[in-house]
Amino acid sequence: MSVTPDSLTTSPASQSNSLVRRFSLTAFKEAIIKGLLFGCAFLSIFTTIAIIWVLLTNTLSFFEDVSLAEFLGDTRWTPQFEGEQKHFGIWPLITGTFLVAIIAASIGLPLGLLSAIYLSEYASPKMRNIAKPILEILAGIPTVVFGYFALVFVTPFVLRPILQTMLGFEVGIYNALSAGIVVGIMIVPTVCSLSEDALRVVPNGLREAAYALGSTKLDVSVRVVVPAALSGIIASFLLAFSRAVGETMAVTIAAGQQPVLNINPLQSVETMTAFIVNISLGDTPAGSIEYKSLYAVAFTLFALTLTMNIISQWVMRRYREEYQ
C-alpha cells in the first residue's frame, strides 16, 4: 500500500470517487486508540486470571501435603501448631465467616431495604438529595474504623452492659456479634443503593394503578413496588452478603483469631479473611505448609464469593420483569 501525500490529508480536493481503502492517518489513529482501549480492558482480565492462577497453583501444592479429606473433614484448624498438633480442617473458619456474615445480613439487609423504600417511595426529592449522599459517606468510611468502633464501642458500651451486666451472658472482648453488627452497618449502603435503583425503575404507571385501586402508600410500596423490583432487591442482598463474607479488617479486629468450631456469637471466632491477615502479618516462612494453607483458604473464599455473585447475576436475569 503506497502512502501518497494526498491520502494523508482530508482536504475535499484530494477526495476521489474510489471506494478502495487506502492507508490514511485517520485510520492509523483509530487503530492505535482501539489497541490502547483493548489493552486497558485486557489488563484487568489479565490481573484476574493471574490471581486465579497464583491461587490455584499454590492451593494445589498445599493439597500435595494435606489431603482434601482432612481439609474438608477435620474440625480443627491449627496450622501454626507443631507436629502432630497441626490440623487443617477448614470448618472452623467457614462457620466463623458465616456466623459473622449472617449476623451482618440480618441487620444490614432489612435496614438497607427499608432505607431504600423510604428513599424511593416516601422521601421528598429534597430529603432524598440530602439523605443519599450521607448514606454514601457511610460506604466511604475505611473498614478498619468500623473494626475499632466494634472493639472499643460496641462491645464495651453496648453488648457488655446489656448482655453481660443485665442478662448475665459472658461476652468476650473479641466476639462475632460486635463484628457482625458493624459489618451489617457497613453493607447498608450497598443494599440501599442497589435496591433503591431497582425500586426507582418500577414504572410510575404501576404505582398510579395501585393508588387508583384505593391503595395506601404502604400498600403501594410493599405489595406492588417491592414485588416488581424483587429481582434487583435479591441481587443486592446476595452482593451485600458476599461483601460481608469477604469483609476483612473489621472482622479481624473485632472478632478475634480463635479458630474454634463455635456458633456462640458472644465468643471470639476467626474468619477466613482474618486468618489470611494473620498469616500475612506474621513471620510464617514462605513455602512452609502454614504459608501454603493461606492460599487454600483464599481459594475457598474466592470460590464461595464467586458462586454467590454468579447466583445473584442469574437471579437478576431470571426474575427480571420487563417493562417498556
Partner: peptide, 10 residues
C-alpha cells in the same frame, strides 16, 4: 380508573 397503558402488577 383504567389507564392508557395496561398496568398489570407482576
Amino acid at each position: 380508573m383504567v389507564f392508557q397503558k395496561s398496568t398489570p402488577f407482576p
